[in-house]
Design a protein around this nucleic acid. Structure first.
Lengths: 337, 337
DNA sequence: TAATTTTTCCAAAACGTTTTGGAAACAAGA
DNA sequence: TCTTGTTTCCAAAACGTTTTGGAAAAATTA
């Protein structure tokens, strides 16, 4: 059906070697023949068969990303933005992006990583939502498969990553709330095995310490990074005898859920209760009231991660293998009516 | 580095044929040898090289999906849910999911489709957000590449698809608003080349007709399926001398943007102005006020689409190639305070 | 003219599987 | 014993590229 390089060669009365080399831009083919080859190849609609090329070249020209699907109905705008970034940058370098899904930390996840690396279906991987002690780091290092991560983990060694300085960000956020007169500031976090939980909780504690406010464990509760989780956690917080006057969500979704709980309680958000989040997703801008948040440029980060990964795959050395970005504090009405 | 089938065969003192057939479950290998083969293969961490298998089998065991990225900062929960569905179902059938991004309707998009089909990198494709006259349908039909679509287009022929009956849904939604006493109901739509715009606008008109309300073109404005687009469109609508008492957004994001515009105008949503959307994304449940919407089970649809696509690839005939689902009207406070 | 270099091409060998078409070994039936 | 099946294995031929290691032809230099 679709023509092979052999068909093109036959039609041109050339060897397949020459056709291949002409198309690949080698300089040992006469300029005139190259033009003929390119013209005829295009005419015939020839595109190299991916599998054959991959087999011979011994690389797949594809990168992989595994989506951490916690729940079936998986709806987190962070990831659609992240994937768009990965996809755009990969596509503009003629790389494919392989996406799969697996609940984090389970056997299925490990199986997937094993299959992709052993079958050489991808030349490298991008990881996100790192765990504190992330087996993936050692696994991929051991397999010598290039990888980059968004955020580091405790066992991160020398692999390239982009980290957003959430710790400073959360400290600044607490500072902002303190400035607004808050003393009882709650924190709705995530499962403790996630690196982002450690980091952001640290930042929260830094902020309290800087303001001379003693840490109160009762003001820290666990969510699950979803709106529903934030909603439920905030309900628990607000039902206590001595409820907080401000709530920080570990991400925007959590904060949005918390706002809903507060509203149901009859609290005026911004006045009776301040709420803030982290991520800077579009929802945060259009929520009611608009949500104070720490913005991180997810799309840009994804693109840069792919750039780094491709350099790694091409065995180039990176000018800046570990990047630290500052999140941008965006103050909106949810803390500042 | 990673062992090939040859290494496994050598270690077992068997031919590679036998190893291959043992692992693939052919019945012309003795049960005892099969067990030995499987055990040793696992011990050695053997996984078939994807490219080699694809080349010989002449199929890639992968399906493709191209994300319609309109803007760089692409954050639509519809798509993260859709991809999660595609990914889960593909993964559980040992298929890979290739994802790329392209602005719809541009040359880059067509190039991508051509590359994927000619290079045989995917065995089939899933399409969404169909256009009225969608060149992709004829293109893929012509290439004889199996594909399924979420929603049909005007030039849809006999390919399998799953369509949610948005037309009836929007009519029912108008009915609900009329019941609540609304007569001036606005519609914030999408670009006119999108099939969903045609269908949903028809449903809106059906609903008006059923209620005996004359169609007023001034109440129909164009958005772009984003929060921001809904926000801007609603501002225009609410600035007119004779503003609507209800606004239907073509999707939930549009409606959420509209709610923000209304709130800024000082309108009490639900009382002064009713707002409703379509999609049933999680945001709609946690917005303020919670949004009346038509729910469609995107995750399930994505999974079913992949099931259909895999059957198509395997040359099986589909019991039900064209499926029509009814969306579920979820009435919340944004229309019913 | 002869020798050398440069240009332009190509045959054949990979890459690592799966599949085809047997062949050997053994068992069963006549 | 001879024939006919079964069972179990395997050599070799694909699949469609890229790459290696020249070789012929043409151009240049001596």
């Amino acid at each position: 059906m679709t023509p092979t390089i052999r068909d093109v060669a036959k039609r041109l009365k050339l060897s397949i070697t020459t056709v291949s080399r002409a198309l690949d831009g080698y300089d040992d083919v006469a300029e005139e023949t190259r033009e003929r080859v390119i013209r005829v190849a295009r005419e015939m609609g020839y595109v190299p068969r991916g599998a054959a090329r991959q087999l011979r070249r011994r690389r797949s020209e594809a990168i992989g990303y595994i989506l951490p699907t916690i729940q079936p109905r998986f709806s987190d705008p962070f990831f659609s933005e992240f994937i768009a970034g990965l996809g755009d940058e990969a596509a503009s370098n003629n790389f494919d992006l392989l996406v799969s899904t697996a609940p984090p930390g389970e056997a299925a996840e490990q199986l997937l990583y094993e299959r992709w690396t052993h079958s050489r279906r991808v030349d490298g991987m991008a990881l996100s939502r790192m765990r504190r002690n992330d087996w993936r780091v050692e696994f991929l290092s051991g397999k010598k498969l290039p990888f980059v991560t968004m955020g580091r983990s405790l066992n991160s060694s020398s692999h390239p990553y982009i980290e957003v300085d959430a710790r400073s960000g959360f400290a600044a956020l607490v500072g902002h709330l303190v400035e607004r007169g808050h003393r009882r500031i709650a924190f709705i976090g995530a499962p403790p095995d996630l690196m982002l939980q450690s980091v952001r909780l640290e930042g929260y504690r830094d902020g309290l310490a800087a303001a001379g406010i003693p840490f109160d464990a009762k003001l820290v509760v666990e969510g699950n990074l979803t709106r529903q989780g934030g909603y439920e956690a905030a309900r628990r917080l607000l039902a206590t005898p001595d409820p907080p006057s401000a709530i920080i969500g570990i991400n925007d979704l959590t904060a949005i859920g918390a706002m809903r709980a507060a509203h149901e309680k009859g609290l005026a958000i911004g006045r009776d209760l301040a709420v803030a989040g982290y991520d800077g997703i579009e929802d945060a801008e259009h929520s009611r009231p608009p949500l104070t948040t720490l913005n991180q440029p997810v799309y840009e980060i994804a693109r840069r991660l792919v750039k780094m990964l491709l350099a790694l795959i091409a065995n180039e050395s990176l000018a800046e293998p570990q990047i630290l970005l500052q999140p941008e504090l965006i103050i909106r009405e949810s803390t500042s009516p």
